[in-house]
Write a protein that binds this DNA or RNA. Structure first.
Length: 780
DNA sequence: GTTGATAATCTTTTT
DNA sequence: GATTATCAAC
């Protein structure tokens, strides 16, 4: 079977899609839709060239359990795609008998696109994220569990935290002390542990020293009781309820296990115990379970991912075929050497050594030391320009960072230099206020029990319903045991309210009644109803934060466009008309609305976590510093340091291996936050990269300024001592008679030449001769 | 009682 | 910097 030209695989997507493949053998199943094969995007034969005949057959179209352990850049997603195509075209498997599970929507989309290119269609195939597929299953079956209807709301993390905060207050605890986020994380972990059969295990959160466990448990109990009352599920429940469904209803379980003759799981190293058990159920009939993953890229331990799932696969499925794909088709040897050198320091792993084509040596890594985050951003922009000047496009470049707050400095430097960029899954679209407001109305239309949405919508735009009125409503609703939407239908309840609040509630009640008719409408039409019913002028006016409301209006338009697109997709997909409720459940699970769409020639900005599975010829890794990578908070919370140090190392490894040709690593000596900041030092992981792999054998400096960039210049610090009476260090907070307060970025020279560069609040960065500038040290 | 302005607070990663 | 708590003014 060689439908594909080996050499094409190496040439890039444009070249590949230009070719046409000869016809494959006729599909055997009578149910199989007639599929016109398109060119597979990449040559699966080439990717599995190192395998023997039996392994190759197992990977491409074999039955039974299969484990593919594949390093970064091995083309494993392409192999999985090829497998789907081979199953359909060669084994006569009908598309609707295949279930492919991924972790991110982006991965699912990519897989769908690739399969579409290979088969000409994805009709009938179930390709989606674990959570998306779980929502789909629950939409059909949740009523079997009792207490829920298919109109259930999916609470995202922000909603969950809002609810938890309310519950914490109801129990008369201080939400500042028991932060909803922390409590939520604790509950999440408990749920996950319960699925591992570890109910009795105490989860101790280091932030509180485990002293208030009973408080956590009380909130947890109340929360567990509230969710079904709201007809709502959180992200954990989505999976847990599917598991419960399969556990408690074997007949139903079997119907799914028989329906899917082949189950494929990508990024298996990131599965948690609940997902593990769901997959086991699904594979219980045919045992045709193919998983692929890379233990070295397991970066979701903090969210319950259990690396044992992949490490123990062969014990769980003793007849499993195991295939390793170690050749890397992405990166040059220097990059791979660096990645290998870093990951080698992890103990909890299976040995794996990446290799590339002989002769693909490439160029050395570029390591840049910068003074602060702005200097770092400028250095990265310079590197990008240089790379692009060499003939590459902006879209070939990515800037990766550990935490979202680092995005800002990078963005402003890119903007200043007019470099086009796109933030991938930054501030989530559906988290924006105007979107959440509109979605709250839609949620109420579908699920009147959704009190979280009610609270959000009732006074947006302002209807004169404040905290007191709301508290009264909640009390009445709780007493009657009904949702808030029912409580305001009761005239006796409204009789207690006077004035503006009263008329506001009446107006809201009428609005809800009209909205109730929208629940069976298409998403876009329902959205129009909401937009008609609310006082848009007022609503926009309230959100006007000086910048104008153009962005917000644009976002609303975008939501509407997305709703329309969803409706279109529904119409063209026979079988499951899900309408508005499907739309709402869908968007709760999608973080990046406009995301993914390769929108032109732009540099991509994203977190390291978001970068997994992607590749770019040019990658800049910002903030390779202690406290950031490994992250200080992760270390602080860890019951076991080495677990975190290793997981963060894997994160670094993921970052390194995204790069194809040029890899830039930067770190700053001072990292500013809002208002504050702190001195920073290079990451311990940076020292694990042999210096000879870096250009110039080591460090390059961020600024082209003539000033030397000694770190913590001892002499200069002494010089400063002479002039200020106290020893200064980089990062110190100082006061200047003229410029006010600032922070020391650099100390250079000694004696009368001792100079400091100080970043003043308001006045910017100044170079000062210490002899004259009478700096007063205020502290760090 | 509600609203709008000012002050405090917190910045890990995500389905 | 943006969200959220607090408080004076309607």
């Amino acid at each position: 079977m060689d439908w594909f030209d080996v050499k094409e695989a190496a040439r890039g997507p444009e070249a590949r899609s230009a070719s046409r493949a000869p016809s494959p053998p006729e599909a055997r199943s009578p149910e199989a839709p007639r599929l016109e094969p398109g060119p597979l995007e990449s040559n699966a034969e080439a990717l599995v060239a190192g395998l023997n005949e039996a392994q190759r057959a197992a990977v491409l179209h074999g039955d039974g359990p299969l484990l593919i352990v594949a390093g970064p850049g091995s083309g494993k997603t392409r192999v999985v795609t090829s497998r789907i195509a081979h199953l359909v075209l060669e084994r006569g498997v009908t598309p609707h008998e295949i279930l492919a599970l991924t972790f991110t929507n982006k991965a699912a989309r990519e897989m769908r696109e690739r399969v579409e290119r290979a088969l000409g269609s994805t009709v009938g195939l179930w390709i989606g994220t674990f959570h998306g597929i779980a929502a789909r299953i629950l939409r059909r079956e949740i009523e079997a569990l009792g207490g829920y209807t298919r109109d259930f709301t999916i609470l995202d993390t922000a909603d969950r935290n809002a609810l938890l905060k309310q519950l914490i207050k109801d129990l008369e605890y201080d939400p500042k002390r028991f932060r909803p986020q922390v409590v939520g994380g604790w509950i999440s972990e408990r749920k996950n542990r319960a699925a591992r059969g570890e109910e009795g295990v105490r989860v101790v959160h280091s932030e509180l020293g485990g002293l208030e466990e009973d408080v956590f448990q009380r909130v947890e109990a109340l929360y567990a009781q509230r969710l079904p009352a709201l007809n709502a599920v959180d992200f954990d429940d989505l999976l847990l309820l599917v598991l419960r469904l399969f556990d408690e209803h074997p007949g139903l379980r079997d119907s799914y296990a028989r329906r899917f003759r082949h189950v494929l799981v990508d990024e298996y190293q990131d599965t948690n115990r609940v997902q593990y058990r769901i997959v086991r159920h699904l594979a219980s009939w045919h045992g045709n379970l193919s998983v692929c993953g890379d233990p070295d890229q397991s970066i979701y331990g903090w969210r319950g991912a259990d690396i044992r799932n992949i490490l123990d696969f062969e014990q769980d499925y003793p007849s499993a075929a195991v295939v390793r794909l170690e050749q890397n088709y992405r990166s040059t040897q220097y990059i791979l050497d660096a990645a290998n050198a870093v990951i080698r320091n992890n103990t909890a792993r299976k040995h794996k050594e990446l290799f590339t084509e002989p002769g693909n040596v490439g160029e050395k890594l570029i390591r840049i030391e910068c003074s602060d985050e702005n200097d770092e951003a400028r250095a990265i922009v310079r590197q990008i320009r240089e790379f692009v000047a060499g003939g590459a496009r902006y879209a070939h470049c990515a800037v990766l960072y550990r935490a979202n707050f680092m995005q800002r400095a990078l963005e402003s430097a890119l903007r200043l230099d007019a470099v086009p960029y796109q933030v991938v899954a930054g501030l989530e679209f559906y988290q924006r206020r105007e979107i959440k407001d509109l979605v709250a109305y839609l949620r109420l239309a579908v699920n009147p029990a959704d009190d979280v949405a009610f609270v959000r919508a009732v006074n947006t735009p302002a209807r004169g319903v404040g905290d007191t009125t709301l508290a009264r409503l909640v009390a009445a609703a709780t007493a009657a045991g009904v949702p808030l939407t029912r409580a305001i239908e009761d005239d006796a309840v409204l009789a207690e309210v006077r004035g503006r609040a009263r008329s506001g509630l009446f107006a809201f009640r009428t609005l809800l009644a009209r909205l109730a008719d929208a629940r069976e409408l298409d998403a876009a039409v329902a959205l129009d109803v909401v937009l008609q019913e609310i006082d848009q002028t007022r609503w926009y006016a309230e959100m006007d934060d000086g910048e104008g409301v153009q962005d917000r209006i644009a976002n609303v338009d975008e939501l509407r466009a997305y709703a329309e697109e969803y409706d279109d997709r529904q119409r063209s997909t026979p079988g499951e008309a899900t309408g508005l409720r499907g739309f709402l459940q869908d968007i709760a699970l999608v973080a990046d609305a406009d995301g993914g769409e390769e929108s032109g020639d732009q540099v991509r900005l994203m977190t390291l976590h978001a970068a997994k599975g992607l590749e770019f010829p040019f990658v800049a890794l910002a903030g390779v510093e202690e406290e950031l990578l490994p992250h200080g908070r992760a270390l602080a919370e860890a019951p076991d340091q080495s677990t975190v140090v290793e997981e963060e190392r894997r994160l670094f490894y993921v970052g390194l291996t995204r790069a194809g040709a040029r890899l830039v690593l930067t770190h700053a000596n001072y990292r500013g936050f809002f208002g504050g900041g702190r001195p920073a030092s290079p990451s311990r992981y940076l020292e694990e990269i042999p210096p000879e792999l870096c250009a110039g054998g080591g460090v390059e400096f961020g600024k082209s300024r003539a000033v030397a960039f000694e770190v913590e210049d001892e002499e200069a610090a002494l010089g400063a001592f002479e002039h200020t009476g106290s020893k200064l260090a980089i990062g110190d907070l100082v006061e200047h008679g003229h410029f006010g307060r600032g922070r020391i970025l650099q100390l250079v020279g000694s004696g009368v030449n001792a100079r400091a560069s100080v970043d003043f609040v308001g006045a910017g960065t100044k170079q000062l001769l210490l002899q004259y500038a009478k700096l007063v040290r205020l502290g760090r």
